[in-house]
Design a protein around this nucleic acid. Structure first.
Lengths: 335, 335
DNA sequence: CTGAAAGCGCTTACAG
DNA sequence: CTGAAAGCGCTTACAG
């Protein structure tokens, strides 16, 4: 910038004004500056300007996801990006892999780079480590999962209601022996889905059978093995509720291996790609990661713009997508 | 930092040394500084330090993808991230949506934020706009698609060889009327796949029938419609080659609508999720986005570390995954 | 409408 | 081992 000023024969301040499209610059001078900019191939340094600017904005926000490669995270990411680009804000993102240590490291790394705010899909059991940063004025919005031990805005799916709808659908088709296969019990959303499962059964006056419940399934393989064991039980379930997309895929595989895909019903939480092309097509309770991401980003930017109202927890509805696998009637096991 | 120095009763420089874990600091002084850091909740500002530091590194790299939400982009992203985290480098990413104007805007936005390098899946027909930046020393690595009108490192899949393998597989099962359904002809990789298709037919002394060729299919819907029309031809193809994952999905849907999924063969380029669970399971030529991303990141960092050797074009092999749809024998059309 | 001085938070290049 | 001065590239807060 100094070189540009020297070449154009004006002050630093005038160059700054031209580069920032400030009004009130003599057109002749501005043209001179622009010529110098082109000649020297000058590239403005946003990092330096943000250091000195009064608002101190870096025009970057941080996004902490479970795994950028998983479809849920990826579509949440894209929704956040779509909101951010309209404000010329860019995204610094990273994956946590359900690892609380990585969560803290990534948060520190993003904060050191002075992001204007953070959208977080938390993984650890305690986000209290962010309190000081929050008090210093960095806006924090939690997405998909609420924060723990910290008061902050959150946008989550209706895990509880969605799970109830899934189980209600199966009960409506006559099922009473409905297995639950769920993710890590340390994940709050998994617990909410499990609570929904239990409550819906309770309201239908169906006893919860502990032998039909499998927790801590975090991969397709683990779910496939667990579902296989359930199907081999002396009194197997007549329907499966898959608490998460990878778990649902594991169920699909196990049902096929057992030749039971047309006799044992299945409803999954979270849509799976191509779920409509499988045979039978897979009934799911779909979440809306794009809606969650969009709302989280909008809230974050309103906070960045100065909104100081009390933090709120927003719940985004889920949607039951009725396909074939959820409508299979119960088939009694012939012992 | 100034406040920390004041509270600890030392100079700025000493605080800087402690924060950066420099050797040669008196343990007593260091402890004093650490106490002040904790008490004031001091947070180091990487942006300010990078401005002054001699290497000028921002510890951020830019990543320009087609769409962070598409599985290919997302898994490439994750592979880049896995390399970057080991160096404490974070990623500033964005989506281009096959839009050349967005490509230039995003590049400018990332460069203004002084990323240490750029990994680019280019979309425009000309990356010459990056030449000056490249000459100024910013390392550039192209992934999935080579740069145009610019010399730079590139890592791409073996589009040509992969397409030949797909077509060869179909020819090996007796097919001679093989339709080509491909993406936008402006996409270089689509053109390479088309060239592979033609050459494999030529080597098998099969005439290319222009009525079996459909270009510029960029969505599932467009591909489904195009495949539907091909199947309704007076002399329909006995096999389809889907030049891209969304196109392959469109083919799957069209074949089902026509009830032809067991009579018309299909091989797709790029794997599709759940392709092994469909009926028939879908034969594909799989790319390896993770390998492409990893290699691109490794090359970028070696450039950042000072490697000044001539740019290279690396080709990552594809892999034919033989499932059922590619092994269906040709069924003659009964006009 | 334009510019000279000061300073954002840090590190460099010295001198002690 | 420690610190005072200068400066990275920019904007602020003035004065003219």
């Amino acid at each position: 910038m100094r070189d540009v000023a020297a070449l154009a024969g004006v002050s630093l301040k005038t160059v700054s004004r031209v580069v920032n499209h400030a009004a009130n610059v003599d057109p002749a001078l501005a043209a001179q500056v622009r010529r110098a900019v082109a000649q020297l191939n000058y590239r403005p340094n946003l990092t330096a300007s943000s250091l000195r600017r009064s608002d101190g904005r870096s025009l970057m926000i941080g996004l902490m996801l479970e795994d950028v490669a998983n479809p849920f995270s990826a579509s949440l990411y894209r929704a956040v990006e779509d909101v951010a680009v309209t404000r010329d804000v860019r995204i610094l993102a990273g994956s946590l892999d359900e690892n609380a240590a990585r969560e803290r490291e990534l948060a520190a790394a993003l904060l050191r780079r002075r992001v204007d705010g953070l959208i977080i899909v938390p993984t650890g059991a305690d986000q209290g480590y962010l309190r000081q940063e929050q008090e210093l004025g960095t806006p924090l919005v939690f997405a998909d999962r609420p924060p723990r031990l910290l008061a902050a805005d959150a946008v989550t799916a209706d895990n509880h209601g969605g799970a109830r709808a899934a189980v209600r659908h199966l009960i409506g088709h006559g099922h009473r022996r409905i297995a639950y296969l769920g993710d890590l019990t340390t994940i709050e959303t998994a617990e909410e889905r499990f609570a929904g499962y239990r409550e819906e059964l309770r309201d239908a006056r169906i006893d919860v059978d502990p032998s039909l419940i499998r927790h801590d399934l975090h991969t397709v393989e683990a779910a496939e093995a667990a579902a296989g064991l359930l199907l081999a039980l002396p009194e197997p379930p007549t329907a499966l509720f898959g608490g998460q997309n990878l778990v649902t895929l594991g169920c699909v595989r196990a049902l096929r291996s057992a030749g039971a895909q047309h006799s044992v019903a299945l409803v999954g939480f979270d849509d799976i790609p191509l779920g409509d092309l499988l045979d039978p097509s897979v009934t799911v309770v779909a979440q809306d990661p794009a809606a969650i991401g969009k709302l989280a980003a909008e809230i974050l930017f309103s906070r960045i713009d100065g909104d100081r109202s009390a933090p709120q927890h927003h719940i985004v509805p889920t949607r039951l997508i009725e396909r074939s696998s959820g409508a299979l009637p119960p088939v009694e096991h012939v012992g």
